[in-house]
Design a protein around this nucleic acid. Structure first.
Length: 779
RNA sequence: UGGCGGAUCGUCUAAUGGUAGGACGGCGGACUCUGGAUCCGCUAGUCUAGGUUCGAAUCCUAGUCCGCCAGCCA
């Protein structure tokens, strides 16, 4: 289990690190994770991140991942969602094997444990109203107060709870609460609710139950039942972890395992909404055509749009896993989609906005078939089709300009362009209707350029896609774009509806090459020079394909020609405030002193009088434990500054994770003395300090036992320096070339080779002069 | 105002006291029968202020900003 990852090059993250550590330390011998959706909506891109994380972890560490439906709320859950969720998880390529679970299957067991809690005096039935409970809970700054029912007897609680289950009481009349602490700083710990009465049929258990457990009670126990080792959830559950642990700890004797919760940042995407509530609204308000509308970030929507599971997986791997709240740029997602489709979508031609072209020197009754590869030269796949060519064609209206702007490379009067896989044509004449709109182009072709190459070697700057008018088929094409035009829909207090992109769907009748007539549902194509398209899996019928635009091609021309037009980058998210320097100005020593009560002021001044900088003095004046240690240590080693450095920095740190030190001031003084007398470098001394923390042993004894000493003799150090420089001629050259920062790197290497024992000051001088010599020799 | 998290190029993410790196984006160039792809180059960052250290994104102190928590939702 020390080499668990089959993806040695894959990025690691804090969760993988932690699991690897748990395995290495023997805390766990296997990894069992779970993906726990509530069946009250469709899965979206954010869930994909969680799914790939949980299933990926299981696979990498040789464990398993469960699919568990967290179905404890009969009001919102529905079998339709259970179906769609399983379909989506499977579609992503994740396999839960036999490990499909439902929290609702645990209802009996959960109920029994709730009785155990009651019997242990750790839960009670509260008969307060919802409003009363809310009022008694207090606020984030004020403690809550106990309900009058908090001290009911175990017998009464048991009786009441059983009768709740039996259906004797109406909804809202009683709840079961954990008896923890109404004054807890963490609101989640103020006697959280465990069970409520709901007289609704549950989609799986029917009328069997009229009490339903809450998430905080159900989730942790479900994890424990299933032997989950690492229960991974999103950041907003950080506050719930304390309760998670409380429930587990208080029922530990009844449980087979002790899972632990780890939180990571959920995925947010720019130009997208991802909350279930908003997604449900979009569906219910008819803003989109359903959960699987291709504009939706739901997995079913993405699937229907033509995004593949591979693309999603790559995306999820690229965004990483961390604890920072973040919003990923949708362009990274779009990049992953294009990158995936580039290698799987055959190239075809379709004209979305047709402009008629007549080749005047091409015989009216003639047509011919041209060879056209499905793949560009840089995609190593085989296959081609024939495309018909004739006198009348369609090209893209946008590929012609009567008055071409600078850098416009496409067709214009008198200009020659290449028709993809066809001939070169020159535009001779522009025909317009009464309104002045261009309706037809009359061109001539060069018969010698068949297939796209000219015998004289000339090459037009542009190559256009086209279709033969007589042979083209009409197809419906749905041009999807981002659903929102604001980077953060609903930012700055707006209603997110205001940020809806009115052009998120444009349906056109397009002219497509005849080969597309047989396109089957679910096939991917690239319409050359336009984008990636997907034959709609629902609306495509034999001979009549309907295409969804998955994503447009990158378009550097569009970018150049309309840099700030079509896609108004409306209100962005609030930028981080630039530091004004004024508001963040730290308090000065004098300000601090002025605000101090007399006693503290006296202590502070006394520390300053012993030569300590005011920051150290402040720390010692506020922390009695540190002050005591400082006092005792300075009695044994009278160097207040040196002692204070240790106390204020290293001891303060140590005290963050433990309540007391296994050694006293005398031992600390001994350590400081070891440094002062040059027997230890600070680096070594820190290691000794760690040992002291772990064992309580005296520093001198540790040094003795480990055989640590500082290497100060240049004669001892020189071979190390030489070895380091010899091992890395390239960096030495860089250093010679002026990259003097490398000195720190070399010193690091020397320190490492010496096991931390080199005296860094001496080593640095040695390094410096050795590198200077090198420079001399090189001349 | 309380508790818990968090802060590294525009965005996402590495660096676990020892060269601040990658990706996306942007800009420029090469190449091209897709203004695609590919390739090359450039751009740009450690929240602030002090301190510890030979050396700090990383450790200490103080501050700033952001997120989450007061559902009988999950």
């Amino acid at each position: 289990m020390t080499q668990p990852s089959p993806r040695p090059n894959a990025a690691t993250d804090f969760i993988r690190d932690r699991i690897a550590a748990d395995l290495a330390s023997g805390k766990h011998s296997t990894v069992i994770t779970r993906f726990p959706p509530e069946p009250n909506g469709y899965l979206h891109l954010g869930h994909a991140k969680s799914i790939f994380l949980n299933f990926g972890l299981a696979e990498e560490f040789g464990g398993r991942c469960h699919l568990r439906f967290d179905d404890t709320n009969p009001e919102t859950e529905d079998p339709e969602y259970v179906e769609s969720i399983q379909r989506d998880v499977r579609w992503l390529g994740c396999d839960w094997g036999d490990h499909l679970y439902f929290a609702s299957d645990y209802f009996e067991r959960l109920y029994e444990l709730a009785e155990e809690l009651i019997k242990a005096g750790k839960a009670y039935v509260d008969s307060s109203s919802e409003e009363e409970i809310r009022a008694l809970r207090g606020t984030v700054t004020e403690p809550g107060r106990p309900s009058p029912y908090r001290d009911r007897s175990v017998e009464e609680n048991l009786d009441l709870f059983r009768r709740m289950r039996a259906g004797e009481f109406p909804e809202g009349s009683h709840v079961l609460r954990a008896k923890i602490d109404l004054a807890a700083k963490n609101m989640k710990m103020r006697d959280p609710l465990l069970y409520r009465i709901r007289k609704r049929p549950h989609y799986r258990t029917g009328d069997t139950w009229c009490v339903y457990p809450f998430y905080d009670y159900t989730h942790c126990l479900s994890d424990a039942f299933e032997g989950i080792t690492h229960s991974i959830c999103t950041l907003e559950f950080e506050n719930n972890r304390e309760l998670y642990d409380w429930v587990i700890d208080n029922l530990r004797e009844h449980l087979p395992a002790r899972p632990e919760q780890i939180e990571f940042a959920r995925l947010d995407l720019s130009y997208t909404v991802m909350s279930k509530r908003k997604l449900l609204q979009l569906v219910q308000e008819g803003i989109v055509a359903g959960w699987d509308d291709p504009r939706m970030p739901t997995l079913s929507g993405l699937r229907r749009r033509g995004v593949t599971p591979d693309a999603l997986r790559t995306f999820c791997e690229r965004i990483g896993v961390a604890k920072t709240n973040s919003t990923v740029d949708v362009q990274l997602f779009e990049h992953c989609v294009r990158d995936d489709l580039n290698h799987r979508a055959p190239r075809v031609m379709a004209v979305l906005d047709p402009l008629k072209v007549v080749i005047t020197n091409y015989p009216e009754d003639r047509s011919e078939e041209l060879d056209a590869s499905y793949w560009p030269h840089d995609v190593p796949r085989e296959g081609s089709r024939k495309v018909p060519f004739s006198r009348e064609l369609f090209i893209e209206r946008d590929d012609f300009r009567e008055d071409p702007p600078k850098k416009y490379k496409r067709l214009a009067p008198g200009r020659e362009v290449r028709l993809r896989y066809g001939y070169f044509i020159v535009c001779d004449e522009v025909i317009k209707d009464e309104a002045g709109r261009v309706v037809e182009l009359r061109c001539t072709y060069d018969p010698a350029t068949r297939g796209g190459a000219a015998p004289d070697g000339r090459s037009p700057k542009a190559t256009l896609h086209w279709v033969s008018a007589a042979h083209a088929i009409d197809v419906e094409v749905r041009l999807y774009d981002r659903l929102f035009r604001a980077e953060v829909p609903g930012a700055d207090g707006r209603d997110y509806h205001e940020d809806l992109n009115p052009d998120s769907l444009v349906v056109v009748r397009a002219k497509a090459e005849p080969s597309l007539a047989t396109a089957g549902p679910g096939e991917h194509f690239q319409f050359e020079r336009q984008g990636y398209f997907f034959a709609d899996p629902v609306d495509t019928s034999p001979g009549a394909p309907v295409f969804n635009r998955t994503i447009g091609l990158r378009d550097s021309w569009a970018k150049r020609s309309q840099p700030k037009g079509s896609r108004p980058a409306a209100p962005s998210r609030p930028r981080r405030e630039a530091p004004t320097g004024r508001s963040s100005a730290p308090r000065s020593r004098d300000d601090y002193l002025a605000g101090l009560p007399p006693a503290a002021r006296e202590r502070f001044l006394a520390f300053e009088a012993r030569g300590l900088p005011w920051g150290d003095a402040r720390t010692l004046a506020t922390e009695p434990a540190l002050a005591d240690l400082f006092a005792e240590a300075t009695r044994h080693h009278d160097d207040p500054r040196a002692v204070a450095n240790w106390v204020v920095n290293d001891v303060a740190r140590a005290l963050k994770t433990r309540s007391e030190l296994p050694f006293g001031g005398e031992a600390l003084a001994e350590l400081v003395e070891l440094v002062a007398t040059n027997r230890l470098s600070t680096k070594l001394a820190r290691r000794v300090f760690e040992e002291m923390l772990a064992s309580g042993e005296r520093p001198a004894a540790i040094v003795e036992r480990k055989g640590w000493r500082q290497l100060t003799d240049p004669a001892e150090l020189r071979p190390l320096v030489e070895a380091v420089l010899a091992a890395d001629p390239e960096r030495v050259a860089d250093y010679r070339g002026g990259k003097e920062k490398l000195l720190g790197y070399f010193l690091g290497q020397v320190m490492q080779r010496s096991g931390g024992q080199a005296d860094p000051k001496t080593a640095r001088e040695l390094l410096r002069s050795a590198l200077a010599e090198e420079r001399g020799e090189a001349r």
